[in-house]
Design a protein around this nucleic acid. Structure first.
Lengths: 419, 419
DNA sequence: GTGTCGGCTGTAGGCCGACAA
DNA sequence: TTGTCGGCCTACAGCCGACAC
């Protein structure tokens, strides 16, 4: 029996958020907190661009296997414009790994105007910021995960997230209950003691650690939602991932299945279903059409300077500077003229070993003002130039969204596109 | 560092067994003990018949999902004759579930004579009995899995499998070490005590139970190999299986991938890889060509009586009697004229709720003497009639294997085949 | 401010025979 | 023959402040 708190809480959220809560019986805030600050799912009903190569990369990363043996699918283009019919948020029952199930339906691009509402929804999705304000994330120490003691709560985190303690008690303490992604309750004793004084979770903590099989290096995160309910999620360290040997289907068949399902759906204009694992996938492969379209107006050239966002430890965001060093196909044999990771890049900082050597145009933010082609009018009034990032959804709607205008443009305008 | 005991032990086994040990670094005896008495993998280098429908059924059973949404693959026949290039035995790292990875290469049937040696190997595979003689299997009781005590070893099992105790000790006891499918060692204290006296595993047992996450109803099995090494496997109760929600690939894409991979391999005569899960799959779907061919000579008619083998509790084998009640396509829309589960059957015993209502011809043993068509000569000397089941491999080889002869027969002889 | 440790304490893990099915 | 239980003991889970970085 699940409490109706989620549905009730949703009424205070923007409308776009509600559809997530309805379609997947999962707390959206908690899901996004676990997914990380860079993950922003396109809204239901919007138009997206699906990249089979990126999907294949996710499977390869999950299976720890390359994609060399995969046959090419000549009839499957490198990108599919799709209507996003449904998004359901999930978490793996065993590992609590978050993932999203998306239902995509390919739409006919050539000679067909996209639904205006779908385009607007697509653009509104760009402005979503899913990271909850009232949350903290701590990487577990050896002491935290040892059976010898409890969990040391960072002072600011405890004061921001937990209900205030009654300091007239000696020592101040209270019972907390936090719910995880599966809506399971975890009770903890929260106490403020020691010399010097600190916040601790004691009774209940070790059963949580052993149940979730947490070890040092994994992270836990606490959220306080609008009704002061505590939510609890985990993010496992990257070193884990037991390669998911599957034992059900071969890695090759999986890759073929991915491509064949998409090809079949595209050929018959039928919906198909994909899974997106934010923390396992090297990059997002379902891109809001507005984001993609906006990126297509970016003039990219060798030597171009750009910024790109990465997640930091403790769930922060940082921008790194880089330079475009090449523009070419990632896989010329199987995916000719694909825009997926078509940019070869170098990074300013020498500690850039973890950062990708190839990115896609929509991943980057040019540091010079991008050059915009002024498109024919689509909305009543046109807005000349690039809107600021800070513009909220309402303003963008009122002014019109110029970069959405002529997405159905012909190949003749390919000078602003990548080869 | 793995001890060379496996390779050394293999030298005392028939040649066919060696290839398993080489290709998969896994104890073949233990694997087969865990797989159950009915599972017999075709030997490497033999010809087999692969049924995509059966493969699809395994996936559906693993995913707890039906196959309704799967598109038909018009270019993929309901069966593929394949050369079995490789078989690797595996066990899931998390659950110890046994499975086999097979590499199959479709061979051209029409107008091509099969390799004679491959046919012989295919037939030899029928005679393999993989169940080790020195083994026992016990379903765990509540007391066995409780933290309150150890494991009560059935008397006969302890006397047959474990090294003999020194009964001059009071009480008689010894330290045992057993290796599991992953070659991991598990030490146990084996003691003979209590009133009345019984064999118990005490120290070490509970860590094994908790590590493998065993609970009452699961079964453990012990094997003593030729060098008196103890081997240890588990068979989980059927009720478990958390549906394997995958979170990597949708069930539909998996099914499509299965079919597309096979179709691609068949179209290009390229090898493809499949996984066979003996305990998850409703039926074997890679059948030795000899077994299939033999079954094709069986005259099946409505009302025909037959026997079929099933696994009992405690890893035994029992035959149940049944009657053929119908002959028809399981899935007329997608798999027209398929032999997969083309027989509708009824069972004699009313407790037959668990037994399938549809089986394939090669699953059953007719109780009346089958009618054999005498095929044209293929080997030097012909053997008129059906060899007895008890014939060993050597004799079968000397006499020739008549039912292998004209497998490449034309549709004109389809009167003995199912429609 | 917080990670790790030694000390203390209580619970439950785990070994035993009794007893019954 | 073997499944479950009560009795008993001890190992370690788990709460505490000390102390150092």
């Amino acid at each position: 029996m699940k409490p109706p708190s989620n549905a009730a809480a949703a009424s205070t959220q923007p409308a776009i958020d509600v559809v997530y809560l309805i379609s997947g019986a999962m707390n959206s805030e908690l899901w996004h907190a676990c997914a990380g600050p860079l993950v922003s799912l396109p809204p239901i009903g919007s138009l997206v661009v699906y990249f089979p190569q990126g999907h294949s990369e996710q499977v390869a990363a999950s299976m720890k296997k390359d994609t060399e043996n995969i046959p090419s699918y000549p009839n499957l283009p490198s990108k599919l414009i799709c209507m996003l019919h449904n998004v359901a948020l999930h978490a793996d029952a065993e590992t609590d790994e978050v993932y999203a199930q998306m239902t995509l339906q390919p739409v006919n691009k050539v000679g067909q105007m996209y639904d205006q509402e779908a385009l607007l929804i697509s653009d509104m999705g760009l402005k979503q910021n899913k990271q909850p304000a009232e949350f903290f994330c701590k990487t577990l120490t050896a002491s935290d995960t040892s059976t010898h003691g409890g969990f040391s709560v960072p002072r600011r985190a405890a004061e921001k997230i937990f209900p205030p303690l009654d300091f007239s008690m000696q020592p101040p303490a209270q019972e907390l209950v936090a719910r995880d992604l599966h809506d399971q309750s975890w009770p903890f004793r929260h106490i403020y003691r020691g010399q010097p004084k600190r916040h601790l979770l004691t009774t209940g903590w070790s059963v949580f650690v052993s149940s979730k099989r947490l070890s040092a290096g994994d992270a836990v995160l606490f959220i306080r939602d609008e009704k002061s309910h505590l939510l609890l999620g985990i993010r496992r360290a990257n070193r884990q991932q037991p390669a998911l040997s599957s034992s059900v289907i071969s890695s090759d068949s999986m890759h073929i299945g991915i491509l064949a399902a998409a090809a079949h759906a595209a050929a018959n204009n039928r919906p198909f279903t994909i899974f997106f694992n934010p923390r396992a996938s090297p990059a997002e492969f379902v891109i809001p059409l507005a984001k993609y379209s906006k990126a297509m107006y970016t003039q990219v050239s060798l030597g171009m300077r750009f910024r790109m966002m990465f997640e930091t430890e403790e769930s922060g965001v940082r921008r790194y500077m880089g330079t475009v060093t090449g523009i070419s196909d990632l896989d010329p044999a199987r995916w000719k003229n694909s825009q997926w990771r078509s940019l070869q890049v170098g990074w300013d900082e020498s500690t850039a070993g973890e950062r990708p050597r190839r990115v896609s145009v929509w991943d980057i933010e040019p540091v010079v003002t991008p050059f915009y082609i002024c498109p024919p009018p689509f909305f009543r009034q046109k807005f000349p130039g690039q809107p600021e990032d800070e513009t909220d959804i309402e303003n963008a709607y009122k002014r019109g969204i110029p970069w959405l205008d002529d997405f159905g443009m012909k190949d003749g305008s390919s000078s602003v596109f990548l080869a």
